[in-house]
């Protein structure tokens, strides 16, 4: 479990409409939502908390409902660099999907954040059992990975640098 992780008390039934409303699951077959909700839990984080830590096991991914999370990377003798922030409507983490299921960045809470956590192991199991669900999830992750890769490419160009 991540540090300062606070498990909510919301019942599974009330999570389903929240899942359905999140952009990541927009248009998803309600039958799949029913499968997924079994892996979901409501979570809340306070500023300064680290949701994930580089190198640790990627047990969950998060559908952010509110707040702001900074993805950070560290290099020796330098302050951490924030490479991306995530907020309402975004998802955090896809390392749960790809072996060896380890986080590649730190994720620090910037603004008080509410999210739905989806258990990675639980999801993998359901995807193994139902490949249609697995394919549907992979398509959605692939879209987000592509967008973030594009953004990273633009970021790499450092277009506003003094000698860009």
């Amino acid at each position: 479990m991540p540090r300062q992780f606070q498990r909510g008390t919301t019942s599974m039934n009330s999570l389903e409409p929240i899942l359905a409303k999140h952009p990541f699951f927009e248009g998803l077959d309600p039958a799949y939502l029913k499968l997924l909700v079994g892996c979901a839990s409501n979570v809340r984080f306070d500023p300064g908390a680290y949701v994930i830590r580089q190198g640790e096991g990627a047990s969950h991914f998060y559908l952010i409902r509110q707040g702001r999370i900074a993805l950070e990377t560290r290099a020796p003798q330098r302050p951490p660099i924030v490479i991306e922030t995530l907020e309402e409507g975004d998802i955090l983490g896809w390392s749960w999907l790809i072996p060896p299921y380890l986080w590649r960045f730190d994720a620090r809470i910037v603004e008080p954040t509410r999210a739905i956590a989806l258990d990675g192991k639980c999801l993998r199991m359901k995807c193994d059992e139902n490949h249609d669900l697995g394919y549907e999830l992979l398509k959605r992750f692939a879209h987000i990975v592509t967008q973030r890769l594009q953004a990273t490419r633009l970021q790499l160009l450092d277009v506003y640098a003094p000698n860009a």
Binding site: P80, T85, E87, L154
Partner: peptide, 23 residues
């Protein structure tokens, strides 16, 4: 607003300007 690179004290968004479209 967003910035390409943020420090730890920056409370705003980090990401290139195209990432703002999703909001």
């Amino acid at each position: 607003t967003t910035v390409d690179y943020g420090g730890v004290n920056w409370r705003g968004r980090v990401g290139v300007v195209t990432t703002l479209f999703r909001h």
